[in-house]
Amino acid sequence: MASKNQADHLESQPLLAQSSNSAGGGASRDAAEATTTTRRERGMAKAFRSTAELAKHLPTGAVLVFEVLSPAFTNGGKCQSVNRAMTAWLVGLCAAACFLLSFTDSFLDARGTLRYAVATRAGLWVIDGTPPPPPEEAARKRLKFIDFFHALLSLVVFMSVAMFDRNVGACFIPVMSYDTRQVFNAVPLAGGMVGTLLFAAFPSTRHGLGFPIPAAA
């Protein structure tokens, strides 16, 4: 009986009113779909941006230099005393570079010129000989706790790769047990994964040296 009354009520409505209700429902569905699409696009853009930002934080340059020079410095793992000393210096210099480069920054001045600086507690210290940035710009990019966190994390990631390198391991530990060899195989992968996740979870606004920056940065 209720279905019959509802049908009679719909039949009694003008066709224009029914069409308006149908159009309103379609517009609502379109708006909901557009909102869902916008959220999905924002999420994907954020994920891609976080992935691109990793290149600025991970010690890829130091690792590349180390991987190129370590075979020669370690003599392919067959180290003498001089090889051990050279390898230790190589690891130390690359580790220091990883740590110190985390405090560097670059920015665009009013003329759109790319300038390089080092973050300090007072602001930015420009290292390319050009005039200092405006006080508000320098204060906004002063040294922060997150910079020390990134520097320490970059150092840990590099050391997990360098100290567990096959040639370095053979140089300093010529005879390895099975358990030690398994640790040497697992630590670089675990260190890289943990470092990548932490860098993505706690990003930085610094651009370092040699990385392009947008005009609005």
Rank of each mutant, 00 (worst) to 15 (best):
Y178T: 14
L64Y: 11
Q80L: 04
A200L: 09
S50H: 07
P212D: 12
V175A: 13
R166N: 09
L108E: 10
D8S: 08
L124R: 00
E136Q: 03
L197I: 15
F73P: 03
L114K: 06
A200V: 04
R29F: 13
T196I: 04
L189M: 14
T113E: 05
M86C: 08
T87R: 10
R181W: 15
D105H: 13
S177T: 15
V63Y: 06
L152A: 12
G61Q: 13
A17I: 14
F172V: 05
G77H: 05
Q182A: 09
A216R: 13
A170D: 15
Q80N: 09
I127Y: 02
L54K: 00
G169I: 02
V187E: 03
F202P: 09
L100P: 05
R42W: 05
F149D: 00
I173P: 00
H207A: 05
K144G: 06
I173T: 13
L16P: 01
T60H: 10
F211M: 03
G61D: 07
T38Q: 10
T60W: 09
S50F: 08
P59Q: 00
H150F: 09
A97P: 10
P131H: 03
S70G: 07
K141D: 07
M86K: 12
M193Q: 05
S70K: 07
P133S: 00
T180F: 15
P131E: 00
L69D: 02
S177H: 06
V175L: 13
S3N: 14
W89H: 11
C94S: 12
T120G: 14
R39M: 06
P14E: 01
S12D: 14
A32K: 14
K78I: 02
A190P: 04
R142S: 07
G112C: 05
A138W: 00
G26R: 14
T87Q: 08
R84L: 11
K46V: 07
L108R: 12
V183E: 10
A110E: 13
A52K: 07
S22Y: 08
D105G: 01
A55E: 11
A139F: 04
G208V: 04
N83V: 03
V82D: 13
A95Q: 07
A62W: 06
P214E: 00
M159I: 04
N75H: 13
V118E: 03
G191Y: 01
V68K: 01
S3I: 11
V118Q: 03
F99R: 08
A139H: 07
A217M: 04
D128V: 10
C98H: 10
P212Q: 11
T35Y: 04
E41Q: 11
C98R: 05
S28D: 10
T37G: 13
L108F: 02
D147H: 11
L64C: 12
H150N: 02
A162T: 09
V65P: 15
A27L: 12
F202E: 10
N83Y: 08
A151H: 04
N21I: 12
S81R: 14
G77F: 03
E41A: 15
M86Y: 12
L108G: 07
R140W: 09
L114T: 01
C94I: 01
A110T: 12
G192P: 00
S28P: 05
A201R: 10
P188N: 08
A119N: 02
A138T: 03
W89R: 14
L54Q: 05
A122P: 00
G123H: 06
M44E: 11
P131V: 05
V68H: 07
V126W: 03
F148N: 07
Y178C: 10
Q80I: 00
P174V: 06
V175M: 11
